[in-house]
């Protein structure tokens, strides 16, 4: 019998809890509320750190490197790695663990891969609920990695206490271009792979571009794999997160409420598409036999109040 069998029991309970809340409904909600009650009773105050950015930028490697430094300081650390589900098959290839060392004997670590499943918005619907369960299980620092793509940023910005946007050495120019989107919500922009040529240049380009705005994000230059700048980055994260107070937990509940609402609408849209009701209604509206207002009510239960 392996020495860690007892250790694993706690992680198994958490893991099964996350699977349970992946199936939305009253039972999932009860479980989430029970977890919140535990966190309140135990005065937990987890810090949720979001990592977003293009595939290959080094988000998983960076989460692992930050987790190692934090764990060495005695903090209990979890990583939730979110990857998209295939729209065609519904399957997913979740490969983030490749970059994250396993620690089978250490109950102070937990890693979970999460597929977006039906989420049209690429931050998994279950992400907020998972952070709530992970906090209740006693983890102080929770990294949530998500592929940077359009709408996902809005979801992760809502959930995270501190949001990192991770860039590779090629970044900088392209970051400028999407400045309006990501950089508005980023707390820290991290240029990773400082061990590679071009990283310093990307960092400099970013710094000159970002210096302009008030409330501009912090900038960091690190190497996740060589371990350069990781301790400093963790200190910056803690500084940025220090003011969250009890707001962290309410933020997670807000994010879950929004996710549940989005999930509901996504399911309605899937249903209306699959049943053909959406197409039929559209034809009837074009033909003038149905109204838009009546169709919104019939399809999605949306009742619009008359214009003021």
């Amino acid at each position: 019998m392996p020495a860690d069998a007892k250790h694993l029991a706690a992680r198994r309970e958490l893991a099964q809890g996350i699977s349970a809340v992946e199936r939305p409904g009253p039972a999932a909600n009860q479980r989430i509320q029970a977890a919140l009650a535990v966190s309140v009773a135990e005065a937990r105050n987890a810090l949720v750190v979001g990592l977003t950015g293009a595939p290959g930028a080094g988000k998983s490697s960076l989460a692992a490197a930050l987790a190692d430094v934090a764990r060495a300081a005695g903090r209990r650390v979890a990583i939730l790695a979110i990857d998209p589900s295939s729209h065609e098959s519904g399957g997913a290839l979740l490969g983030d663990r490749v970059r994250i060392d396993e620690h089978p004997d250490d109950d102070g670590r937990f890693t979970r891969s999460i597929a977006t499943r039906g989420s049209g918005r690429s931050l998994a619907h279950v992400a907020a609920a998972a952070t709530i369960l992970v906090e209740a299980a006693g983890f102080d620092l929770i990294f949530v990695e998500t592929v940077g793509a359009g709408q996902a940023e809005i979801g992760i910005a809502r959930l995270a206490d501190v949001l990192l946007v991770v860039e590779g050495p090629e970044g900088g120019d392209e970051v400028q271009a999407m400045k309006a989107g990501i950089l508005e919500v980023a707390d820290i922009v991290v240029v990773n792979k400082s061990d590679r040529p071009g990283a310093q240049g990307a960092f400099d380009r970013l710094r000159s571009g970002l210096a302009l705005g008030a409330g501009a994000p912090e900038l960091a230059l690190v190497s996740a794999t060589a371990g350069a700048g990781i301790g400093e980055l963790l200190a910056t994260i803690d500084e940025k997160g220090a003011s969250r107070g009890a707001r962290g937990r309410t933020r997670r509940v807000e994010a879950h409420l929004v996710a549940a609402a989005e999930s509901h609408v996504d399911a309605q849209v899937r249903e209306a598409t699959a049943s053909g009701a959406l197409a039929t209604r559209a034809e009837q509206i074009v033909a003038g036999t149905q109204s838009l207002t009546g169709s919104l009510a019939a399809l999605f239960g949306i009742t619009e109040s008359p214009d003021a």
Binding site: S85, S86, E88, S89, G90, G91, A92, L93, L94, G95, R97, V98, E102, S113, A115
Partner: peptide
Amino acid sequence: RDEGFEVIYT
């Protein structure tokens, strides 16, 4: 994955 499974590769 293409068959609809969620695959975790370690």
